[in-house]
């Protein structure tokens, strides 16, 4: 089952017909570059279909892991993240009734966050799943979030699944939130909105738009 988890999750998404799920990336950055990172994967709307899939031995030639196996993979991710320099308070909450996964941790500085994400993704020994070395950059005057989602998924999804995935992602959404101590003066991504005294930047988009490049997740936030 090793290294089968990501293809399997994609398979679930592609086969859960009217797939409805939400992905939330919630990053808080303080003035000194430290902060906290939170990821929420919410598949609650597709729970019944995921239950059906998990009851199968295999789906479309891919072995279907048990909840215990999926849980073990998530725990392994948590342990690897906790071992990274500059990363602390790693908390993982996996709810297999509602199918909601929450991962949160604190980082010492932006370099620690980038390095940790890169190292942990690289530790899965599949280079095509490896995240770039610099996903976020912060210089005190601006914060840059580089494009990842579209390219990352492009490398993951087998060609035969693309059409199916496109058809079935109608209800899926991606939300990116950046919380800052300073007031934001400008954002490069026109689809992003500002809230609460101009200190929170929110970008919410259908995942299908990300895959078709109607929406880019890259954004530079100026203070």
């Amino acid at each position: 089952m090793r290294n089968k988890i990501i293809p399997f999750l994609l398979l679930i998404l592609s086969f859960s017909l009217t797939s409805c799920f939400d992905v939330i990336e919630d990053v808080t950055i303080h003035e000194n570059g430290s902060g906290s990172f939170k990821f929420i994967g919410n598949l609650s709307q597709s729970a019944s279909r995921i239950n059906t899939i998990l009851s199968l031995d295999s789906l479309n030639g891919q072995p279907v892991p048990s909840k215990a196996e999926i849980g073990a993979h998530i725990d392994r991710f948590r342990d690897r993240m906790a071992q990274q320099a500059g990363i602390s308070n790693v908390v993982v909450n996996k709810d297999f009734d509602k199918y909601i996964l929450t991962i949160s941790f604190d980082f010492k500085d932006m370099n620690s966050l980038n390095q940790a994400l890169h190292n942990v993704s690289e530790s899965y020994n599949k280079k095509r799943y490896t995240l770039p070395k610099t996903l976020y950059s912060y210089d005190g005057n601006s914060l840059e979030r580089k494009e990842l989602f579209h390219s990352f998924l492009s490398t993951l999804i087998a060609k035969g699944q693309k059409d199916q995935l496109n058809t079935n992602l109608g209800g899926a959404s991606y939300t990116s939130v950046f919380r800052l101590d300073k007031k934001v003066t400008k954002v490069s991504n026109t689809k992003a909105t500002l809230a609460k005294d101009n200190t929170i930047v929110i970008l919410r988009t259908p995942i299908a738009d990300v895959l078709t490049k109607k929406t880019l997740l890259s954004n530079t936030i100026y203070f």
């Binding site: 280079k127 095509r128 490896t130 070395k133 494009e147 579209h150 492009s154 059409d163």
Partner: peptide, 20 residues
């Protein structure tokens, strides 16, 4: 094909070698 091949315009990512 909706999902195009990986773009290098957005960021510089290490070249992904063939699946090993």
């Amino acid at each position: 094909i909706y999902i195009e091949e990986e773009s290098t315009e957005e960021y510089e990512m290490e070249e992904a070698p063939a699946v090993e």
